[in-house]
Amino acid sequence: MYDFEFVKPSTVADAVAALADEDAMALGGGQTLIPTMKQRLASPSKLVSLAGIADLQGVTTGGGSVSVGGATTHATVAAEAGAYPALAALAGDIGDPAVRNRGTIGGSVANNDPSADYPAAALASGATIRTDRREIAADDFFQGMFETALEDGEIITAVDFPIPEAANYQKFKQPASRFALVGVMVAKYPDGVRVAVTGASENGVFRWKEAETALTKDFRTDALMDLDINPLNMISDLHGTGEYRAHLVKVLTKRAVATC
């Protein structure tokens, strides 16, 4: 890892100012960024830790939604997002316990790893990603593998999750990395069902709209019987072929519906 300057501001405004430097990067819990820097795949000149900003911490529930501060750890979400049990369960199964004590929602969502869990939760919930300068709908936020709508130096201050009537996240873990080989989040809202898939597509997290339409009409696993998902743009690697991942998408969607 190349050396860098480390700063830990206590306000969002100071963090935004610190990130204005060329080659500065925001640091959440570092559970992805530090390993990436060790491999010299990232070499920021300055790291701006967001861990000292009180405004970015914690889970608040009200008005039919759960709002998670951008620097809130997975362990805290698992413990405090009880108003949205599927979200708490998802957070409580990311990585391992020590990783959950450091990793943050803002870091996960901003990185948009194609196998990360939180992007599926945000997209299936129709979440709103709030930043230091605007609000972005999850549908507009995730723009492909490791790509998001965030501008340089833009900080995620919170993610607001509308609480569904029922929801479930099913993850088929890649046992070495503990990332999702495929993960499917199903969330049922009064105006329809949303299905978000992580781990499977070359384009990162996506909504399986055919399944959403079928499940909005009839919220039973049988509604998915005749549906299949095209394996063409699925990730194919040593852990599984595109066809295998496409198969898992359907199986996990059914399991999620059955568990709702």
Binding site: F6, K8, L27, G30, P35, A51, A98, V99, N101
Partner: peptide, 19 residues
Amino acid sequence: CTVHVDGVAVKSCNMLALE
């Protein structure tokens, strides 16, 4: 490399000393 920081387990190889 697991140690406790402020009462919870973390992987100390994945945390900066300055953090």
